[in-house]
Design a protein around this nucleic acid. Structure first.
Ligand SMILES: [Mn+2]
Ligand SMILES: [Mn+2]
Ligand SMILES: [Mn+2]
Ligand SMILES: [Mn+2]
Lengths: 221, 221
DNA sequence: CTTTAAACTTAGGTATTCCTAACTTAATAA
DNA sequence: TTATTAAGTTAGGAATACCTAAGTTTAAAG
């Protein structure tokens, strides 16, 4: 029912809403989608009329159950496509997102179930993000911690990567970081809170900012 | 550059143009796309302004080189997706077209080349229709004849099926007709110009109308 | 050669989606 | 508490893509 634009707005609001600290503002959405605040204000009012979110002018917005269901539906398609593009067609970490951003709006329920089946009903996408099932339920994943919280001397498995930029994803690929890759935490520099990790035979210094994009589970030998 | 709507109009006009007998009219396009003649008239004027076709009011239209290039670009994406959906995901003859009709507008050049590579640079789609290459060149295919012209007693290989309706495609699947399937022409009834063919161990009577959708190449034993 | 019917276009309208500029409301700082 | 600034909305406008109804042009009969 929703158009491509509406799906992108609803998905953006869902993602902004996941930060429980602050409510979602018109400006947040406008920045995320790179459209004017005026366009956002209009769209938000339309989505409110259509029952996808609750909205009080000049106050924040929050998705209704219907809105959340729609968002998870789009996210399911996005993540299944990303996994498919990477695992089957061999695209790289930095390439999948842009393609999925479009395909997520062009895929019937029928086709997405075929893809899901082909991939063996996967639980996570190539960044380690959970894939909602066809009813909109997010799978429970084991707890993981950001690199900042990983302890020196221990071994970890990379289970999630926040996709903040193409450049960053390319850098991770370059240094050999991929999902489920084992790494060892060599040391941490208190000077700038950066962490030195060993990936295979090489070691790399990861800045505090970049560390917050990498999530690990401790390896049980 | 063209929008989804424009791509569909341009593709429709290209396909109507392939009949060399008559020029393409507004009504033809309107019927094909199931939109009003008014909407078609407006769109055709816009496409003319934008250089995709030549148009004289109340006379016919014909695509420019730019228009043909655009049409072949869309057709390439459509046919590659159809092949992919059938060969890789296992959709049926009757299911692929509807999905491809949408995906054809949502696929970057980069992605379509990846798909093409994955499929081994195929020359034909699941209906036996040629797939234009990335420069818009249609591959040359061996001559084939419709079932009406196939001779009684001879063996043939099915090389092309005109996709006229889901119902018909399902019927073909049911009776075991698939691309490259071998059939034997058993007899022809002059009463209604229908043809009896043998597929595997079973024989079927194919009406004259349906015969015109099936194209064969004589089998050289 | 007219008349008439079919084909085609224009007029006028609706709905989306987006923009900039102007204005209003809320939050903040003096 | 008031002024100022930041946040958010409305006004007005453009482009796309549709529609129905009314008019125009062309083609076909008579
Ligand atoms: Mn993504
Ligand atoms: Mn998107
Ligand atoms: Mn098709
Ligand atoms: Mn299409």
């Amino acid at each position: 029912m929703p158009t491509i634009s509406k799906e992108d707005y609803i998905k953006a609001i869902y993602q902004l809403e996941s930060d429980p600290d602050k409510s979602v503002s018109t400006t947040d959405v406008a920045n995320k989608l790179e459209v004017s605040k005026a366009a956002t204000s209009e769209m938000v009012q339309r989505l409110s009329e259509q029952g996808f979110l609750n909205y009080e002018k000049y106050r924040g917005m929050s998705l209704t159950d219907e809105g959340k269901k729609t968002a998870l539906h789009v996210i399911r398609r996005h993540r299944i496509w990303e996994l498919f593009l990477m695992d089957v067609l061999g695209l790289s970490w930095s390439e999948v997102h842009a393609e999925a951003e479009i395909l997520e709006h062009s895929t019937s329920d029928f086709l997405i179930e075929k893809l899901d089946e082909y991939l063996g009903h996967p639980k996570v996408d190539p960044h380690g993000e959970p894939i909602p099932d066809k009813y909109g339920n997010l799978p429970e994943l084991p707890d993981c911690v950001s690199l900042q919280l990983c302890e020196v001397g221990k071994n970890y498995r990379l289970v999630k990567v926040i996709d903040s930029s193409k450049e960053l994803m390319n850098y991770f690929t370059e240094i050999g970081l991929s999902l489920n890759r084992m790494v060892m935490v060599v040391s941490r520099l208190s000077y700038d809170n950066s962490t030195i990790i060993q990936v295979g035979n090489d070691s790399f210094n990861i800045s505090e900012k970049i560390s917050s994009n990498l999530f690990f589970i401790e390896a049980v030998k």
